[in-house]
Computed example of a mutant assay.
Amino acid sequence: MDLYFLGTGAGMPSKQRNVTSIALNLLDERGTYWLFDCGEGTQQQILHSPVKLGRTEKIFITHLHGDHVYGLPGLLTSRSYLGGDTPLTLYGPKGLKAFVETALEVSGAHLTYTLHIVELTDEGVIFEDESFLVETARLEHRIECFGYRIVEKDQPGKLLNEKLKELGVPPGPLFGKLKQGLTIQLEDGRTLNGEDFLGAPVPGRVVVVLGDTRYCEGAKKLARGADVLVHEATFAMDKQELAYAFDHATSTDAARTAQEAGANALIMTHLSSRYQGDSVTELLHEAQHIHANSYLAKDFWCFDIPRKV
């Protein structure tokens, strides 16, 4: 599992940063990618990345400002051209369905796959299966905006092979059943419960991706105990009043959120184009003063999220 940043700029693209889009690589976990936001030019960014559009399963939109959604119509149609034939689900605020369907209709687009659009009307769990859960909460921005908390469920512990060998259990199908936590009966009549032969469960990972927001309780709620928090940092601390006026966050706001929520790593993105070259390190230093494990994202940068041991 890793995060791949396709665009890390705010408002409009610059020569150094495209507008917002992030890919969560779940190839090892479920053979797919999940995208978060899809600003203009996202499909072009994908061409220069390891992300496979045809294997994208879900797209989560935080809000409907153009720098987060204007890349959707082109990306959805290109997915057809690239052999994407599996269903795709979009999640986002009310209005997403009208935006997408209107763009596809007036352009005469034809999709070769089933497109599901889920408009969010409330906070809470929006997706859950046997391996993942996705929860959302409202943030504080000029228009309705959501953040997403992706929770990987705990994995079963390793099978204690040596313990089984000591009991004379032969490797093979019986090991597989015990690994599933099932109860088996040996030829000599002994009964073994698989739960007794599994190590401690492997904790799942938690990734939180926020949309545009100023410092708020909704962000901290989602970020509690996260392995990784992705938070906007449009401005440096000396632009605090400007950030607040436009419902954006500073690098200090992002770091406060991570620190108070107990998040392990903070990744800052959605950076104003006023920060170029060496000046961008100002944002990083401000955040690290509060939350030491802080990073600045850049386009085509990958952040690995290892399993907990």
Results as ranks from 00 to 15, higher is better:
residue 84 G to S: 07
residue 169 V to T: 05
residue 165 K to F: 11
residue 192 L to Y: 10
residue 188 D to K: 03
residue 173 P to F: 11
residue 205 R to H: 03
residue 124 G to P: 05
residue 131 S to N: 08
residue 86 T to K: 15
residue 84 G to I: 01
residue 168 G to E: 11
residue 94 K to L: 05
residue 151 V to G: 02
residue 177 K to V: 00
residue 86 T to S: 13
residue 182 L to F: 11
residue 87 P to S: 10
residue 143 I to W: 13
residue 201 P to Y: 07
residue 98 A to R: 14
residue 112 T to S: 15
residue 197 F to G: 02
residue 108 G to C: 10
residue 89 T to R: 05
residue 197 F to P: 05
residue 157 G to F: 03
residue 163 K to L: 05
residue 173 P to L: 11
residue 95 G to A: 03
residue 179 K to V: 08
residue 196 D to H: 09
residue 126 I to R: 06
residue 92 G to F: 02
residue 170 P to K: 15
residue 154 D to H: 08
residue 123 E to I: 12
residue 175 F to H: 13
residue 114 T to I: 04
residue 125 V to H: 02
residue 194 G to E: 05
residue 149 R to I: 01
residue 167 L to Y: 01
residue 201 P to I: 02
residue 165 K to H: 11
residue 140 E to A: 08
residue 160 L to T: 00
residue 91 Y to C: 00
residue 171 P to T: 06
residue 100 V to W: 01
residue 199 G to V: 00
residue 119 E to T: 13
residue 98 A to M: 11
residue 197 F to K: 05
residue 83 G to I: 06
residue 114 T to L: 12
residue 199 G to M: 01
residue 94 K to M: 06
residue 194 G to T: 06
residue 115 L to T: 12
residue 160 L to E: 11
residue 100 V to C: 07
residue 146 F to I: 02
residue 86 T to V: 08
residue 89 T to N: 06
residue 110 H to Y: 12
residue 173 P to T: 08
residue 96 L to E: 00
residue 85 D to I: 14
residue 103 A to Q: 11
residue 158 K to N: 10
residue 102 T to E: 12
residue 200 A to E: 15
residue 107 S to Q: 15
residue 108 G to H: 12
residue 147 G to T: 02
residue 205 R to N: 07
residue 186 L to A: 09
residue 165 K to S: 14
residue 171 P to C: 05
residue 180 Q to L: 12
residue 93 P to F: 06
residue 86 T to F: 10
residue 114 T to Q: 14
residue 93 P to Y: 08
residue 168 G to F: 14
residue 184 I to H: 09
residue 133 L to C: 10
residue 189 G to N: 05
residue 156 P to D: 04
residue 192 L to C: 13
residue 105 E to Y: 10
residue 121 T to I: 07
residue 203 P to T: 08
residue 195 E to A: 15
residue 89 T to H: 01
